[in-house]
Nucleic acid binder design. Structure first.
Length: 754
DNA sequence: GTTCTAGAAC
DNA sequence: GTTCTAGAAC
């Protein structure tokens, strides 16, 4: 029978090379290959159900026993020692064991791993990674729980536990790790173990179940699409770096969200990989540099690295994968992907905004492999854009090329930047030929990856070259980034109409409508009287001049209110909503404040609707808007010193006309009603003004904007990051949460307080 | 039965 | 952006 039970992985079981002859003999004595399955999951994740289902449903002759700490002491709560003893006894009787305890921390499961290894038995981890809110709500509402953990107490416990969760790693000693993200995954995993006969073994390695889940599937969802079932023809391995936008986020307890990712083709190390013994060097370079890189971005930005290869059989891919797991790199932040790097979105379901190209030294489109494929997929515009940035590359260096929005690769796959990178050159026909100096080759390879990651970092965080801590003068240009080129495709709020190809025409008000607005004294956010009768979303012909095609958003009729105010503040001077007016901006009390204090600094520049429109020329304006915001925050602090303010923009605003939010972090407001409200101020969807300014200084555009998918993320406290099942519960939590703010908010004056 | 969310309409 | 409401979740 197939021990993989028709599951999602097609990898054949590896030879049990790690086991000595003695172990095999012991197995024979016991009459099979036993296994210890360590379940990993918080209360409410369904560990007991899982274990019971495996025990009850075993249909292949394997004997299973569930060991549950809650019941081990004659039905009463027991100790870990008792569990270990029971495990040992069961194994000696020839049974396989399911450890039914939370085991969320490495230390908690270490003894079981050790026991397995002492007895020469494989130890698997099955992580039940359901969304926190699912676990919480199940744990809270269950009745008659064996450990009596239910009701309100359960929510607290689950939250506390999830903060400490450590993802199981192969380095801990597990031979196989499987993670399940929804009930479907769990069912599959149960089936897999049920079908496991006494002599069968499951393939070792990490198996992320990536099925489509209901809501918070996040990265796992699109990883699923990387399943080896859609493998294409191989032309050699490649690593690709790309900025990855997952379809949806699954917040992880510690380093929360992953948002920006980069994929790179393995061809960077082409020369080195010609010889098998040098694969070691290559994988070291990949995973070491990746690990360092990810560590730098831990907790700061949602970064992901994706290693791409056309072939599932790639030896490099599996070596890197293995190495990465040993390096304790979070498998959701650095993972391998089988597929075509030029079709990551359309074929692979990955949203990679940045891809790395294993270029040639002349940065020519030709050649073969991934370079030719990327140039061909990206069209002429990549060639032109590349020429603008650099003429040639030295081995070990890389260059960022913003991909013009007319490029098919930009339009179809959402790629905004290509980073050309040149690895070591082992080809005697080329300059800088290294002969057979593989040590030097590895060094250059390392440099190449460093350069690549640095450049990727600069795209994500706007850190080109040296970090500039203050809002000082402009930094030097970043390789000719044109803001228009970096605009992302977006859909309108109904998701029905693709974005227009041209810049939009601001609506023209009819005389009658102007009259109505004046009469009302304030533009009504949802009153269609403000809407132009002249089709507000029509394209303006003359605006296509320079870069031609510009992705832009269509604005609904209700989205015009701020524009109207900014253009004609004098009409609304009688209201007390406008707090300040200047030539450049107005300051307005938000009509539906989401906190005790919530004001908007609205730019008065016509045509500047959102961050996507902001270019270097707007920097002085942005700095002055920021200063005005700080000034108002300070004014509010004089009235209430307990407030804390954050200044920032929405990545994708709902209302047109660029506006900066100044919002107190109490979020104490009846107008804060839903998940979108909450997440728009407490996830990376909210772009701190200081970061936006820095990005534009260094990049010429706001590059790290997050997309609207993030607004559907689960609800987490903005201070302690605990998860909550719904808005009312979240609000009652934040009313009392006294935790300090996450560390990244405490830096760079992202928070303003007294 | 009540609470809460999410999608449509504006 | 908000409001409204069907229907899911409790």
């Amino acid at each position: 029978m197939n021990p993989d039970g028709g599951g999602s992985s097609s990898s054949p079981p590896p030879p049990s090379a790690s086991r000595g002859a003695g172990a095999e003999a012991k197995e024979e004595e016991r009459g099979g290959k036993q296994v210890v399955v360590v379940l990993v999951g918080p209360p409410g994740s369904g560990k007991s159900t899982f274990a019971d289902a495996v025990v009850a449903g075993s249909n292949a002759g394997r004997r299973w026993v569930r060991i549950c700490q809650d019941t081990i002491g004659n039905g009463k709560a027991g100790t870990k020692i008792q569990c270990l003893k029971a495990t040992s006894d069961a194994l000696k009787e020839g049974k396989s064991v399911l450890i039914d305890r939370c085991n969320l921390e490495r230390e908690q499961r270490a003894d079981f791993v050790k026991l397995g290894s002492t007895l020469h038995v494989d130890v698997h981890a099955v992580a039940l990674d359901l969304p926190a809110k699912v676990c919480i709500s199940r744990a809270v509402s269950r009745k008659g729980h064996e450990g009596n953990l239910q009701g309100g107490k359960a929510a607290l416990v689950v939250n506390r536990m999830l903060q400490k969760k450590e993802t199981p790693l192969l380095t801990e000693g597990f031979s196989r790790i499987m993670s399940c993200n929804d009930d479907g995954d769990i069912k599959k995993a149960v089936d897999l173990y049920n079908a496991l006969g006494p002599s069968d073994s499951l393939p070792s390695g990490i198996f992320c179940q990536k099925s489509k889940g209901p809501v918070q599937v996040g990265i796992m969802k699109f990883l699923k699409k990387g399943d080896t079932s859609t493998v294409e023809k191989s032309s050699g391995p490649k690593i690709t770096l790309s900025e990855t936008k997952p379809e949806q986020q699954k917040p992880l307890p510690k380093h929360e969200k992953v948002e920006e990712g980069m994929s790179c083709p393995m061809e960077i190390e082409k020369g080195l990989n010609d010889k098998n013994e040098n694969e070691e060097h290559a994988k070291e370079c990949d995973s070491d540099t990746a690990a360092d890189f990810l560590q730098k971005f831990d907790n700061i930005t949602y970064i992901r690295l994706v290693l791409v290869d056309l072939s599932e059989k790639s030896r490099i891919l599996s070596l890197v994968k293995e190495k990465a797991s040993k390096k304790s790199i979070d498998c959701s932040r650095f993972f391998t992907f089988v597929g075509d790097i030029t079709q990551l979105h359309t074929k692979g379901g990955l949203r990679c905004s940045v891809i790395a190209n294993a270029a040639n030294w002349r940065l020519k489109p030709g050649g073969g492999g991934v370079n030719a494929a990327i140039f061909s997929a990206a069209g002429e515009s990549l060639h032109h854009a590349t020429k603008k940035c650099a003429d040639a590359l030295r081995p070990g260096t890389s260059v960022v090329v913003p991909l013009p929005s007319i490029s098919p690769l930009h339009q179809r796959e959402g790629v905004t930047h290509v980073i050309h990178v040149l690895g070591p050159n082992m080809n005697p026909m080329r300059p800088d030929y290294l002969k057979n100096d593989y040590i030097k080759g590895s060094k250059i390879l390392h440099e190449a990856y460093n350069s690549l990651f640095e450049n990727f970092a600069s795209i994500v965080r706007g850190h080109m070259g040296k970090q500039n801590e203050k809002l000082g003068p402009e930094m030097s240009a970043s390789g000719g980034t044109s803001p228009n080129d970096t605009k992302m495709k977006r859909e309108d709020s109904h998701g029905s109409e693709r974005m227009k190809k041209h810049k939009l025409l601001p609506p023209i008000m009819t005389v009658k409508q102007q009259h109505e607005c004046t009469k009302a004294n304030m533009p009504n956010y949802h009153d269609k009287s403000i809407t132009s009768s002249a089709a507000p979303n029509q394209a303006r012909e003359g605006d296509t001049k320079k870069s031609g095609v510009v992705a832009s958003k269509t604005w609904g009729s209700w989205a015009q209110a701020l524009y109207e105010l900014a253009m004609h503040p004098e009409k609304y001077k009688n209201t007390d909503s406008i707090m300040e007016t200047s030539d450049e901006f107005i300051v307005l009390k938000d009509l539906y404040p989401k906190a005790k204090r919530h004001v908007l600094v609205i730019s008065r520049t016509d045509g500047l609707d959102s961050l996507a429109d902001v270019k270097k020329e707007h920097l002085p304006l942005l700095r002055r808007m920021h200063s005005a915001g700080v000034k108002w925050a300070q004014k509010f602090l004089e009235e209430d010193a307990s407030l804390v303010f954050r200044l920032g923009y929405h990545s994708v605003p709902s209302m047109r006309q660029l506006h900066l939010h100044i919002i107190s972090q109490d979020f104490d407001s009846t107008s804060l009603k839903n998940k979108k409200h909450w997440n728009s101020f407490t996830t990376p969807f909210f772009r701190d003004s200081v970061d936006v300014i820095e990005e534009i200084e260094q990049h010429g555009s706001a590059t790290a904007s997050s997309d609207e998918k993030i607004l559907a993320m689960e609800l987490r406290c903005h201070r302690c990051r605990s998860a909550h099942p719904n808005i009312p519960k979240l609000k009652s939590h934040i009313a009392n949460c006294k935790s300090s703010f996450p560390s990244h908010l405490l830096q760079k004056n992202r928070l303003t307080s007294s």
